[in-house]
Amino acid sequence: MNAIQIPKVTSHDGLTLPTIGFGTYKLKGNAGADAIARAIGNGYSLLDSAFNYENEGTIGQGIRAAGRERSGITVTSKLPGRHHDYEEALATIEESVFRTGLGHIDLYLIHWPNPKVDKYVEAWKALIAAKERGIIRAIGVSNFLPEHIDRLESETGVLPAVNQIELHPYFPQVEAVDFHRSRGIITQAWSPIGRGNEVLTEPVVAELAAKYGVDAAGIVLAWHVARRVVALPKAGSDEHQISNLNAATIALKNDEVDAITALGKPDGRNKGQDPATYEEF
């Protein structure tokens, strides 16, 4: 196992997560379970999945194959938009737990708010109930805007522990990160290195990679760690898995962090998925 000490962040309600986790999107079947088992062996303790990824069973198999204590692994999954009705949400959460075969899921998120449908508060109430039953241990959201989060708290009295959002140097989400920090909400970054964009070829990233003797992806991940954001990169090979974790040892200076943040664009989203209007089911 990789002995790197990954910095951690803690939410308002005591949830503690490492600042580098492991994304599992598109990891399925035996090959996916093998990649997950190796990731655990290489030192990852946070695994990110979703009902819509159709790989919750693969997550469970990967953990069993790794032979690690279940208590040392944080498994995340997410509720799809088509199941925001309260009873459907509860059944979907139960199904997620059944798929993993792990007895419980550590962190469960609402995948998207789907504001046009406007049932995300109902879905949130289902997550609260599932947590009270003990089948999930912590609850949060994904792709929620501050106004969505404020509404959850005002109508239920329960604030999410996590908000997982698109976040990378072209879309640094400065205001969202500041909002989360002010409320004790952990920010997680999906697509943390960008997906199909040119961020890894930016001169400032390349210069810092040369300075610190790492690849460009390592610099971008170090930028996340410096901002106390939980990055969720995906990597199949042992080499990439380990190099991503090693990014946690790079201590970027404040001006270097600022230089990367300055790469942000007015709307740097990869696919224009604005949570104010985007719907995913």
Results as ranks from 00 to 15, higher is better:
194 G>Q: 08
98 F>E: 13
83 H>F: 14
87 E>N: 13
118 D>E: 13
72 G>Q: 09
256 E>L: 11
125 K>F: 08
257 V>F: 03
80 P>R: 03
117 V>N: 10
205 V>C: 12
272 G>W: 08
121 V>E: 11
34 D>W: 01
65 A>P: 00
235 A>Y: 06
5 Q>I: 04
264 G>F: 10
216 A>V: 11
200 L>P: 10
183 R>V: 08
45 S>C: 00
100 T>Q: 07
226 A>D: 12
263 L>K: 07
254 N>Q: 15
27 L>H: 01
228 R>D: 14
68 R>V: 15
1 M>Y: 03
98 F>Y: 00
131 K>V: 07
10 T>K: 06
233 P>N: 09
73 I>D: 05
20 I>W: 00
229 V>W: 02
131 K>G: 06
106 D>G: 09
211 K>Q: 13
247 A>R: 04
277 T>D: 07
166 E>V: 10
2 N>Q: 12
276 A>E: 14
148 H>C: 14
149 I>M: 14
100 T>P: 05
192 P>T: 07
79 L>M: 09
139 I>H: 05
45 S>Y: 00
31 A>K: 09
121 V>N: 06
39 A>I: 00
150 D>H: 13
118 D>F: 04
89 A>S: 15
201 T>F: 15
150 D>W: 09
116 K>C: 01
190 W>I: 08
163 N>D: 15
93 I>T: 02
177 V>D: 09
